[in-house]
Structure formats: structure tokens, C-alpha cells
């Protein structure tokens, strides 16, 4: 039977991958740099997280290395587009090739590795192990899990990184919209010349936020390989989620909160596609996906088709409301040159 709670619960979990990647890209694009290399950075992150965790047994170290590795990779894109003023589309593509290639080379043979210490599920028992706050957190988690509907979906049996996502969305929103660094970030992406004239270093901030985007893409990759679907399955590990994240940024209109809803919806869709092929009966009728297993290929198309649809909606909205895209997105900043 299709269980809506299970689908939404799994959707929030696997949507966390898209959540981190999308918000990372939002940071980079808000500063004016579009980075199409998300897929490559996620692969580097997934590979290094899994690899480090296998060899050290410490998943936390795996996450850190994954973030740093993807962050380092992102700096190639930053150098090419900010310093050398190369085309951001081509450079981002190059980054994906490079990230994919490097992760395939370094990840060779990883898939054969055995079980690995994974990131923990948040449970009262695990929370009690935290010094000082442990007891309080455990109580809080039990209370949250008891909320009808939302409790089972959001707070029961979820990985620690999924909880990380809940905390991260409001923080990202607050940073961008309510703080001075956030104001600088938006200024650099919307009107770099004005930001520059007020003493904000456009170059330095853009490098920094491309790095932030890289860190978060690495975290997204680590979320896959250490929590959501553990392991290293070469390019199939991400399966195009990096590109879906880039598409979601447009749907989200560069807003972390909208990004969250988009990411969770896509996560739920992924789970629905798996689950819908199971039961023999669907809404009281014979389930066509059960009796025609090859129709599954059409189900597989859905996330990608939805990304296109979501892009059309997002692009139309952006045109209609004249809002969304940072004005200087994709435009290199050259001091003293006319333009934005």
C-alpha cells in the first residue's frame, strides 16, 4: 500500500541533498556567480566523504573533508570566472567534467568496500549521549516527534543531517536578508559597482560565496553517500541531482525558504516513483505500474520532466513579477568598466 507518511518522511530525507546543494548555489548566484559545476562538486563530496569514512571510521571527518574538497574545486571556477572573467556557463560545465573525472579516478574500487560507519539517526538514546544539553535535547526530540502528522514526517527516524537542514534554512534566510554581510552579498550580486564604491570588495566576496556554494555542494554529496543512500556508485551516486539543484534555484527565486519546499517536494517525488510500483492495487484499481514494470522508465523521467516544468513556471514568474535573478548574475565585474 502507498503510505503517504512514509513517502513524505523519505522525501524530506532525500530532499535534504537537494536542499544543501540548492541553497549553496543560491549563495553563489546571489553574489553574481552562476556555478553549473554543482553536479561535479557533489560527486567529489560524495566520493571523499565515503572514502574518508571508510578509512578512518569517522563520518564527521568524512563530511568535513567532503566539504573542503568540493570547496577547493569551486575555487577553480571562481578563479576562471572572477579573475580571468571567463564565461560562467562553460567554466561551470568544465567544473562538472573535472569533478566527475577526479571522483571516478579516486573512487575506483570504492564501491566494493564493505559497510561503513554512517552518520547517526537522531534518537533520544543518541541525543542523551551529548554532554550537558543531551537530556534536554532528547526530551525536545520526543516532544517534536509527538506532534501529529509533522512529528512522524519530520522528526522520527531522521538522520542528523536532515535535522541539520531544518536548522540551516532559517539561518541561511536570516543571513541573506537580515544581516550586514547578507546586504553586502546582495549588493555584490545586484549592483557590484555601487558595492565597490562603498568599499566592499566584489572580488573577495564573490570568491567567498562561490566557496560557500562549494562547501554546501560537498555537504550535499556527503549527505548522499553517508546518510541517504550510503555508498559510492560512480556517477549514479548523484544521478543528475546537481543539475536539478541548479534548476531549483530558479524555481526558488533565490530564496532559501522556497528552495526548501522545492527540495522536499522533489525528494518525495523520488520516493513516490519507487513506492508506486509496489502495490497490486492503486486507488482500488489494478496498478498499471505493477503489471507493466517497463512503465517504470516513464516514472524515471518524472524528476527530470518536473525540473523542466518547474523551470518554466519559475522563469514565467520571474518575468511577470520582475523579481528574482540577481541583476549582475553571470556578468564579470571589472572596476571602471561601464555596465552593471
Amino acid at each position: 500500500m502507498l503510505d503517504l507518511i512514509t513517502i513524505l518522511q523519505a522525501g524530506v530525507a532525500s530532499g535534504t541533498v537537494l536542499l544543501f546543494a540548492t541553497i549553496g548555489e543560491i549563495f553563489a548566484e546571489r553574489s553574481g556567480v552562476m556555478n553549473l559545476g554543482v553536479e561535479g562538486m557533489m560527486l567529489i563530496g560524495a566520493m571523499s566523504a565515503f572514502s574518508v569514512t571508510i578509512s578512518t571510521g569517522d563520518p564527521l571527518l568524512g563530511v568535513l573533508v567532503a566539504m573542503l574538497a568540493a570547496g577547493l574545486l569551486s575555487q577553480i571556477h571562481a578563479f576562471l570566472t572572477i579573475t580571468l572573467q571567463s564565461d560562467q556557463v562553460v567554466s561551470g560545465l568544465a567544473l562538472t567534467f573535472l569533478g566527475t573525472g577526479i571522483s571516478l579516478v579516486l573512487g575506483e574500487g570504492l564501491s566494493k568496500a564493505g559497510t561503513v560507519a554512517l552518520l547517526p539517526i537522531v534518537s533520544p538514546a543518541w541525543l542523551s549521549g551529548i554532554p550537558l544539553l543531551g537530556g534536554g535535547l532528547a526530551l525536545l526530540q520526543q516532544l517534536l516527534s509527538a506532534i501529529p502528522l509533522l512529528g512522524p514526517i519530520l522528526f522520527t527516524n531522521q538522520n542528523v543531517l536532515v535535522y541539520g537542514g531544518y536548522l540551516f534554512v532559517p539561518i541561511a534566510w536570516y543571513l541573506i536578508n537580515r544581516t550586514r554581510p547578507g546586504l553586502h552579498l546582495r549588493a555584490v550580486g545586484d549592483y557590484p559597482a555601487a558595492a565597490d564604491s562603498l568599499g566592499v570588495s566584489v572580488t573577495r566576496l564573490r570568491y567567498f560565496y562561490v566557496f560557500v556554494g562549494g562547501l554546501l555542494a560537498g555537504l550535499a554529496g556527503a549527505t548522499i553517500s553517508l546518510a541517504i543512500s550510503p555508498g559510492w556508485f560512480s556517477e549514479l551516486t548523484t544521478g543528475g541531482q546537481g543539475w536539478i539543484a541548479v534548476g531549483l534555484v530558479i524555481f526558488a527565486q533565490w530564496n532559501p525558504v522556497r528552495a526548501m519546499f522545492g527540495a522536499y517536494a522533489f525528494g518525495a517525488l523520488r520516493r513516490l516513483i519507487l513506492d508506486i510500483q509496489g502495490p497490486t492495487l492503486l486507488f482500488g484499481m489494478a496498478n498499471p505500474f505493477y503489471y507493466n514494470p517497463y512503465w517504470g522508465f516513464f516514472l524515471q523521467m518524472l524528476p527530470y520532466a518536473f525540473t523542466v516544468i518547474v523551470l518554466v513556471i519559475g522563469s514565467r514568474d520571474a518575468v511577470r513579477k520582475r523579481l528574482g535573478a540577481p541583476a549582475a548574475l553571470g556578468v564579470p565585474y571589472v572596476r571602471g568598466e561601464r555596465g552593471l
Binding site: V90, A94, G101, I102, S103, L104, V105, E108
Partner: peptide, 13 residues
């Protein structure tokens, strides 16, 4: 087996 892909990426960069 990833080496050709990696070389392609480096060439493009």
C-alpha cells in the same frame, strides 16, 4: 577507468 574523463575535464579547464 575515469582517467579519460578526468583528462577531458582538465583540458577544458
Amino acid at each position: 577507468s575515469g582517467i579519460p574523463k578526468m583528462i577531458q575535464g582538465i583540458v577544458l579547464v
